[in-house]
Simulated scan of single mutants.
Amino acid sequence: MKNLLFSRRKVLFMLTDALSELLSSGLSLQSSLSLLSERKSPLGFCACHLHTALSSGMTLSVAFCSAPALALPDWYASYIAVAEECERISPILSHLRSLLFHEKMLREKIFAMLSYPCFVTLLTAAAGFFSVFYLLPSLSSFLGGDFSEAQKKAFETMLFADVGLLTVFAALVFFVSKVFSPSPVLNVIKTMAFFSEHDIPTLQAVSCAFAFVGREKKIAFALLSLRNRLLDGESIADAFGFCLEKAGFKAEGRLLSEFLYICEQTGNNNGFARSARVLEEKQARRERILLSSIQPALLLLASVYITVILKIAFLPYLTSLGGIL
């Protein structure tokens, strides 16, 4: 079996998808794993490991984490732990399948988004290389003068321009990944929305949401403060609003607080879901703005690159050619 991260994540998606289908049809977890373990494939190998681990008394979350053929994100293990604790394995596996599918589509979207900038960057760099290493020697032999200094300067200019071009492309890759990746706050709210929909206690949902924080210390401190306030009996609307605003997420905190307050007055439990939809719409607007601005920005960058090459590299030749004419 391949040990590449991508293939291991793919096996995780296949296993989650298969288990979700079998459990939703009415089969038990052990029966589902027993059926899947009969497959002579990476999926069957993982299912066999899980079946053996559960038969030996290991918990499902520990069994998933110990599986050698799976690339398990932290949030996946947290969801499985909550599923065991609340005995909601079937709906949570279905939700995990949708999360993994969304992660896969996001990765493909980013790759597709960067394919055009990569093509333009390589084409522009190739044009500069062709100009300096093929066109300039041809002009030198045609004019018959000593242009060694001009050729050296042209080569240095091309290297400098290529470094700048690659730097801009690397910055674009970083910027695109930041814009297209959902913020940790949105992931936390979506996690709370799912658990609220399935009547899972808020404190357990907050504990699971910690897995989406990553390196965002401000959100981690906000969730810790939130947990303490909920334990002290403060309302969910006030606790979430105060903690997120204090952590620096004022817009998200106020939005969520308003929706949760209305839900508390009406008895609904869709405050998190409504907040997540609003934040996802803002995310979609940012993506559309980025998509509409990348093409003209790249064309402008290519124009500047070619202009610099023409001015520094070809101007001495053109001046000499004008004198000859």
Results as ranks from 00 to 15, higher is better:
Phe130Glu: 09
Thr307Gly: 15
Leu19Met: 15
Thr319Tyr: 08
Leu223His: 05
Tyr305Arg: 08
Pro316Asp: 01
Arg107Asp: 13
Leu203Pro: 11
Asp17Gly: 04
Met158Tyr: 12
Ala222Val: 02
Gly164Ser: 07
Phe221Pro: 00
Met1Leu: 10
Arg9Trp: 00
Ser303Gly: 15
Ser257Leu: 05
Pro182Ile: 00
Leu244Lys: 06
Leu291Phe: 09
Asp74Ser: 11
Leu72Lys: 04
Ser115Phe: 14
Ile200Phe: 07
Val132Lys: 06
Ala63Arg: 10
Ala313Gly: 15
Arg8Thr: 01
Val179Ala: 09
Ile312Gln: 08
Ser148Lys: 11
Gly322Met: 11
Glu38Cys: 03
Ala81Cys: 04
Arg9Asn: 06
Leu244Thr: 00
Leu36Arg: 05
Leu106Gly: 01
Lys153Asp: 07
Glu281Asn: 14
Leu60Lys: 11
Leu255Gln: 08
Gly57His: 08
Phe212Leu: 08
Lys10Thr: 09
Arg227Gly: 09
Cys243Arg: 03
Ile200Pro: 02
Gly267Val: 02
Leu23Gln: 11
Phe142Ile: 13
Ala125His: 02
Val168Arg: 02
Ile294Met: 13
Ser55Ala: 15
Ser115Cys: 10
Ala71Ile: 00
Val173Arg: 12
Phe169Gly: 02
Ser24Leu: 15
Ala127Pro: 04
Leu27Asp: 07
Leu33Tyr: 02
Leu43Glu: 02
Gln204Asn: 14
Asp17Leu: 13
Glu197Leu: 09
Tyr76Lys: 02
Ala193Val: 06
Arg227Cys: 09
Phe212Asp: 05
Ser31Gln: 14
Ser207Glu: 10
Gly267Ile: 02
Val168Pro: 00
Val185Thr: 04
Arg229Phe: 12
Leu159Phe: 08
Leu301Phe: 12
His95Leu: 01
Ser303His: 02
Phe147Asp: 04
Phe6Leu: 14
Gly164Arg: 03
His95Phe: 07
Arg254Thr: 11
Ala77Pro: 11
Ala18Gly: 03
Leu186Ile: 04
His51Ile: 03
Arg274Ser: 10
Leu33Pro: 05
Cys263Ala: 12
Leu159Ser: 13
Ala171Ser: 13
Ile324Cys: 00
Gly323Met: 14
Leu255Trp: 03
Ser183Arg: 08
Ala161Glu: 03
Phe242Asn: 00
Phe155Met: 10
Ala239Cys: 03
Leu60Ile: 12
Ile294Phe: 04
His49Tyr: 12
Met158Ile: 00
Val213Ile: 07
Phe212Asn: 12
Pro117Leu: 09
Ser115Arg: 15
Ala18Leu: 06
Ile312Thr: 09
Arg9Ala: 12
Leu298Phe: 15
Ser98Glu: 12
Leu310Pro: 00
Leu29Thr: 01
Leu35Gly: 00
Ser275Pro: 04
Ala276Gln: 08
Phe240Tyr: 10
Leu318Asp: 03
Ser148Val: 05
Phe64Gln: 05
Val120Ser: 10
